[in-house]
Write a protein that binds this DNA or RNA. Sequence first.
DNA 1: AGATTAACTGAACATTCGTTCAGATCAAGC
DNA 2: GCTTGATCTGAACGAATGTTCAGTTAATCT
Lengths: 195, 195
Amino acid sequence: MARKSGSHADITGPKVREAALKLFARDGYAAVSMRKIAAEVGVQAGALYLYTPDKQSLLYDLMKVHMEELLDAWGQADTGGTPPERLEAFARFHIHYHLDRPDNIFIAYMELRNLDDANFAEIEVLRRRYEQGLIDILEAGNASGDFAVPDPKLAAMAAISMLNGVTTWFRDGGRLSRETVETIYWDMLRKSVAA
Amino acid sequence: MARKSGSHADITGPKVREAALKLFARDGYAAVSMRKIAAEVGVQAGALYLYTPDKQSLLYDLMKVHMEELLDAWGQADTGGTPPERLEAFARFHIHYHLDRPDNIFIAYMELRNLDDANFAEIEVLRRRYEQGLIDILEAGNASGDFAVPDPKLAAMAAISMLNGVTTWFRDGGRLSRETVETIYWDMLRKSVAA
DNA sequence: AGATTAACTGAACATTCGTTCAGATCAAGC
DNA sequence: GCTTGATCTGAACGAATGTTCAGTTAATCT
């Protein structure tokens, strides 16, 4: 047997990345074999190598695309305004964006250690750029007198850690709605940096 | 060759757990082979099975001991007082305790998915117990009027996420001292739950 | 209809995995 | 000094790993 019907290259390619994303997030990069990814796609392991040069590239591509899309999306969501307004936009954007992509953020923050050195360096640049966006807001708020943040870099790390945490426990249909969660988190963040 | 000199059982046993902790935290459970652990200890892989029935038990034991010691330590550090006092004690304890044991917390929160079902259930009970301690403080603070926390459970998750984050970037000898970091984190937490 | 080619299979490769175990080695007890 | 028993080695087990590739199938092109 070979391909069953129709042209599958543009279908199987994305399916490979989706399967890898799902399985890497659930079981971790090292625990997922190429054969498991192939089974999830509905294909033999050898066929995966039509879409990725190797397993490592699969992880790297997932991370890179995620970070680039994240930076792009935040670039569009950041419509300016006062530092408190921009911080609220950031908090709501970050939570909203990641609740829609829990697998992506899980990989982005948990599988960094499984990137080889060169790939890690590239992803790290993108991650720093995203964090720097938040740092800039906090510094602007300090300057305007809206915030009282003794160390913007530290506060940015703390804020992102807090916001990221939501993906580890939030489930749709649970006790709280997305809207409620988003608002409560924003409220905590707002107060934590307030002057 | 067999054992070189002296009785090694009470030396090798702890060394196995230390090596496993270090390597699991650095590379992840699935990426660490028994042979790598053995090499770190300075022994052949077969010898590990004198100290653990299997690899899974090694992970489970590390987690269980960590959680039990954590609960025990917090039980001693929680000396009572007003809710704000207890919250400060919690924040400082949590940061201090985990900065001394970065490998432990990394495993405790990252390798849960590598526990089999029965082991996971046991560890989960301990983790919930620790989180409940924080929830109790937040509820007490709501009752006393010191805090304004709309959802103590959510706030507890957010607070722990934030505090845990410190271990991912803090390094001794870096820009900030432990004392400074501890105080800044506590200050952010204090404000975030304040009435 | 025949040729071409993209898409995939299935088997194979060297290596590594967790785990077992017979045997070697050495410290301690008699 | 001989025995015992704790401690560890080194080899082996079947299974699984990432990756390669010759061959097979079916859609497309001429």
